[in-house]
Structure formats: C-alpha cells, structure tokens
C-alpha cells in the first residue's frame, strides 16, 4: 500500500502505470517521475522501498500540479471565462461545445444524453 498525492493507492502494478491513477499524471509524466527518482521500468508498487516512495512524493509535490489543486485551477479558468462574458464563457454556461464544433448533430459529450423532442410528429 502506497499513498501518493492524497488518496491514490494502486498496488501490484508497475510504478509507471500506477502513477497514472493520479489525476493530472499520464504516461509521459509518470515516466518522467520514474527517471527522476531512478526507478527501473519493471519495479512494482509493492516492491518499492520506503525511501523511493518518499522521493516520488517529494518530486510530485515540488514539480507537478495534481488532484485537487489541478482541478481547482481548471475550474477557476472556466469560471474566469464565464464571468468575463466572452464567447467561450457563454458556451460553457450553456453546456455546449466551446471550440466551434458542430451542434446540429453530435456534441453529445457536452449536451448530455439526447432528450426526446416533445410534440414532434412521428413520420
């Protein structure tokens, strides 16, 4: 069991993969961290020494923005756009795609599940 950057406790996996369970760390950053700390590719989380765990924690604390802090920053950026009243902010407010995608069809990720149109006649 290893707790790194809050609540993340992935065990039995390779360190490089396990680190990607942290919000804000993908494969690239996980690899970076491993080289910085000097952990070989095939090291599993449960085989790590306490010292290595501490060093990983230090590296993440110092050099990366993860989890809550990152989420807060993203939310703040979106809030800034919404308060500003610019086009991107309006799109965020309405829950529509922000980057000029089509909304005639698709855009379901932003719009959510399709709602049936009330009163539409069936062909």
């Amino acid at each position: 069991m290893a707790r790194i950057a809050g609540v993340n406790i992935p065990t039995h996996k390779r360190v490089e993969i396990a680190l990607t369970y942290i919000h804000g760390i993908g494969q690239t950053k996980a690899k970076e961290i491993c080289t910085k700390v000097g952990i070989p590719d095939d090291r599993r989380v449960n085989d790590m020494t306490d010292d290595e765990v501490i060093r990983i924690r230090e590296v993440i604390d110092n050099d990366y923005m993860v989890e809550g802090e990152l989420r807060r920053e993203v939310a703040m950026n979106i809030k800034r756009l919404m308060d500003l009243g610019c086009y991107k902010g309006l799109r965020h407010r309405k829950g529509l795609p922000v980057r000029g995608q089509r909304t005639h069809t698709n855009a379901r990720t932003r719009k959510g599940k399709a709602r049936p149109i009330a009163g539409k006649k069936k062909a």
Partner: peptide, 15 residues
C-alpha cells in the same frame, strides 16, 4: 474593457 479581457478579441464580447 476590463483588465481580464486583455488578449481576447473584441468579437468575443458581442455575439
């Protein structure tokens, strides 16, 4: 125009 708007385009504020 406020300070936060710097770097945006004018068109962004007039739908």
């Amino acid at each position: 125009v406020t300070e936060n708007m710097i770097g945006h385009k004018f068109g962004e504020f007039a739908p």
